[in-house]
Simulated scan of single mutants.
Amino acid sequence: MSERHLIIGAGPVGRHVAAELAREGRRVTVATRSGSDLAIPGVDAIALDASDPDALSRAAEGVDVLYNCANPRDYTAWETVWPPLASSLLTAAERSGAVYAITSSLYAYGPVDGPMHEQLPDAATDHKGRLRAGMWRDAKRLHDAGRIRAVEVRASDYVGPGIGQNGHISRQLPAASKGKTAWVFGRKDVPHTFTDVQDVARTIVAAAADSGAHGRVWLTPSNPAKTQEDALNDVFRAAGIAPVPVRSMPRALVAAASLVSPLMREINELAYQWRAPYLVDDSAARERFGIEPTPWDDVCRRTAGVTAVTL
């Protein structure tokens, strides 16, 4: 009988993980609160409140791999949403015996000098970075105790289809298509790593399947860093959009907006990511899994199609 895989979350990463597994002929179920059908051949959908440990444990019974691809819709509500959800996922992983595969960001590292790599400590001081670091710390503790099998794959800012307004690049497409200026956070002229969601999916599937890869973090193979201006122009070109001015939002304006807007407050706290080079050394994952990133031209074409995707 083919392996069974349960994916929590049907955002861009969850959808790509489901499609990747379905192509391999795996039995795949995607759980969301609504239970909406993803319309991916071979993929089932169920309605589930994954923060309920008993309900999630029942759904995970007999499952080989449990994927955490959740992404809370409200960026300002992580402290409310993530703790019960993360705890429930750990409980379900322990009860079911499934490999627990976590998709995550680079937030846990905080500001660093030079490229990020897996041997760096989780040293974030902002609340989002500390939260994500704590989620992995809790999973690693249970893994080291022999109570679960866990692995985490981290990625930089997402590009590719389905990202929409949640992506620093894709959110600019609708306005740019009307000839409007593209306003970016931080500097527009420093290199920044972008990661295609397809490559995140390929990496987490490979890491979950490789028992020797468990118990640690892996960084998703990504293309060489691009400045925000260059990345935007590349995607605009792929979308057939005429060039538009790319300008940096004044720091004083962002700081002032953060005083009244909870979302801008969150963004301002993480603004270090856009004010200095934000680079990834993904050599360990490339060597371990034999994965190379999707070619940049293909990434741009995939991202350019995001305006036709409904989240």
Rank of each mutant, 00 (worst) to 15 (best):
W78S: 05
M264E: 09
A209Q: 10
P191T: 03
D126K: 02
I148M: 08
I102Y: 15
V65P: 04
G164H: 10
N68L: 12
A201P: 03
A209M: 02
H143G: 10
C300D: 00
L106W: 11
S156K: 13
R154N: 05
A98C: 08
T310H: 11
A59F: 00
G179C: 10
V151F: 02
V151C: 03
P245D: 14
H16Q: 11
A206P: 00
G240V: 02
T125M: 12
M249P: 02
A70N: 03
V200Y: 03
F185R: 03
V309M: 14
G14C: 11
G290I: 06
A252D: 08
R265K: 15
A22I: 05
A93N: 01
K128T: 06
L263T: 02
S87E: 14
D210I: 09
A124M: 13
S248E: 05
A108G: 08
D52K: 07
V13L: 09
L259D: 04
L142Y: 01
V28M: 06
G212S: 08
F185W: 07
S2W: 14
I291F: 06
R141L: 11
V260Q: 13
G162W: 01
T29E: 06
D210F: 08
P84N: 11
D234N: 15
Y272W: 15
A98Q: 08
R73M: 06
W296N: 08
D138F: 03
A207W: 00
H143C: 09
S283C: 07
A55Q: 07
V235H: 01
L263A: 04
P245R: 15
I8K: 14
P250G: 08
T125D: 12
A271Q: 15
H192P: 13
M264K: 12
V244H: 03
P41C: 03
V13H: 02
T181Q: 07
A39S: 05
R4L: 04
S170G: 00
A124V: 06
P295D: 13
A242I: 03
E20P: 00
G134L: 07
L232C: 11
A55W: 13
L85Y: 11
N71W: 10
M135Q: 14
I148C: 12
A133S: 04
P12W: 04
I267C: 09
V200W: 05
S248M: 01
I204N: 08
